[in-house]
């Protein structure tokens, strides 16, 4: 059986990580594949894994009864999805669905958590990488929230509202 180690070593998320850590992480990894439309996980389920995307596109969605599923963001090859396995109570906060055929490496969250507890250096290394991604996603979410392309979102402040009806 061939190992996932070379794939993990090359993935942008883990690139540059100490070889010994990669080996440890490989021990928690397995290859997975999702057909288009298949869910990687659903909101509320236990978050036992996270995914390193190798190929394809995954959409993160939140379901509402009125508007069905609202897509929030997509992630693709070279990126990762999921950090709920790191944060108690380890439940997913959104649905993740494969847009097209998705190949990924699933990492066992429990297994990783244990290894991080045993080796805080590795835990810190991994956490730094997750923090970077969390920061990026937070910034993106903020920008998304601003709805910057909406005709009346260009400029904030009271005058925006005052002049809204005073079209020119």
């Amino acid at each position: 059986m061939h190992t996932l180690e070379p794939i993990l070593t090359e993935h942008p998320f883990l690139k540059g990580l100490n070889h010994a850590y990669i080996q440890l992480i490989t021990g928690c990894a397995r290859n997975v594949r999702f057909e288009p439309g298949q869910f990687l996980f659903r909101e509320g389920e236990e978050a036992n894994e996270f995914y390193i995307i190798r190929h394809g596109r995954v959409v993160m969605e939140i379901f509402t009864p009125e508007r069905t599923a609202i897509p929030i963001q997509t992630v693709e090859e070279g990126e990762i999805i999921g950090w709920s396995w790191l944060i108690p109570p380890y439940h997913w906060h959104f649905d993740a669905q494969a847009v097209d055929m998705v190949r990924a490496i699933a990492l066992d969250g429990k297994c990783l958590r244990n290894k991080c507890e045993e080796d805080h250096d590795m835990g810190y290394e991994l956490l730094k990488r997750f923090a970077h991604i969390m920061e990026q996603r937070l910034q993106a979410a903020r920008l998304q929230l601003l709805d910057v392309y909406h005709p009346h979102s260009g400029v904030a402040g009271p005058s925006a509202r005052a002049l809204k009806n005073k079209k020119r």
Partner: peptide, 12 residues
Amino acid sequence: DFSYIHGGSVRS
């Protein structure tokens, strides 16, 4: 509205 651009005024 001296500084008005679509959406609002720059100097509100």
